[in-house]
């Protein structure tokens, strides 16, 4: 019985392919350019420009003995997929509920709220894959990826993105007004971006802040991607990062499922 329900869901999610394909076709060019240009600018300004000062007198021990460019390149990949995830799971979700109301059109067809959620998240995952892959190519151009481990930074990027997208989807599905997003950006996204170890080691932070940072999925994402692009993963530690990110995905998915079902099916 459970098997029958499962396969029905897969079929109903698949039926959304054209919907998301057409939307993608409308927007991918613009986002591809930003996805490519922004990392180049960041890496030039911070990795190369700022890095020249940081690396004066040789690589810093607190950076793990690597150049600043090598240090922040994976951090930028992780923060970049996080930002893509935030963008894709906030305004568009509320828009499909409140402005265009496209979710309501979708559930008037055979699709159920859960199918709509899974279809939308599959689309988010595809966007994350593009962001991570393009960013990875930029890193390759800058010569800061150690193959073959670094290849895994791409799926890791998708995982990091989904760990943010699923709980934010849940939150967006509950919001009444878009003003909530401003708050999420100011007290959530921006501090997380700055203090999750992408730009400097979190060991520089006071202890309580270090603990707080380590609760955030982004910190684990940054550490994971860095281990991969530097080509020196520590199996136990990095499996731990993956498990923690997966936990956010699973809990986020369960919350999003409940939130959307409640919002659409009242």
């Amino acid at each position: 019985m459970a098997g029958r329900v499962e396969s029905a869901t897969a079929g109903l999610v698949w039926r959304q392919l054209d919907h998301w394909r057409v939307r993608w076709r409308r927007t991918w060019r613009g986002s591809a350019v930003t996805t490519f240009v922004l990392p180049v600018l960041y890496l030039l300004a911070m990795g190369v420009g700022l890095g020249a000062y940081v690396d004066e007198g040789g690589p810093q021990a607190s950076l793990g003995g690597v150049n600043y460019l090598d240090f922040i390149a994976p951090g930028l990949l992780a923060t970049s997929v996080m930002q893509t995830a935030v963008g894709a799971s906030t305004w568009p979700v509320l828009g499909a509920i409140k402005w265009d109301k496209t979710y309501f059109a979708m559930i008037a067809s055979p699709l159920r709220p859960r199918d709509v959620l899974l279809g939308n998240l599959a689309f988010v995952a595809a966007r994350l894959l593009m962001t991570a892959a393009v960013f990875w190519l930029v890193l390759l151009l800058f010569g800061v990826v150690a193959l073959p481990w670094a290849l895994l930074a791409i799926p890791a990027g998708v995982l990091i993105g989904m760990a943010h997208a699923t709980p934010l989807f849940a939150l967006s599905a509950r919001l009444e007004r878009e003003t909530g997003f401003m708050l999420i950006y100011r007290i959530g996204v921006v501090p997380m971006f700055l203090f999750s170890g992408a730009f400097f080691p979190v060991s520089q932070l006071p202890d309580p802040l270090q603990w707080l940072t380590q609760l955030l999925p982004l910190f684990h994402g940054v550490e994971l991607v860095r281990a991969l692009t530097l080509g020196r993963p520590d199996l136990l530690v990095d499996v731990g990062h993956v498990a923690y990110l997966l936990l956010w995905c699973v809990v986020g998915l369960a919350l999003a499922d409940r939130s959307l079902a409640r919002r659409l099916g009242g």
Partner: peptide, 19 residues
Amino acid sequence: TLDSELTVRENLLVYGRFF
């Protein structure tokens, strides 16, 4: 509840696929 980012015809094309 139309998809305002899509064209008139695209709205029908993608919706029919849901069925």
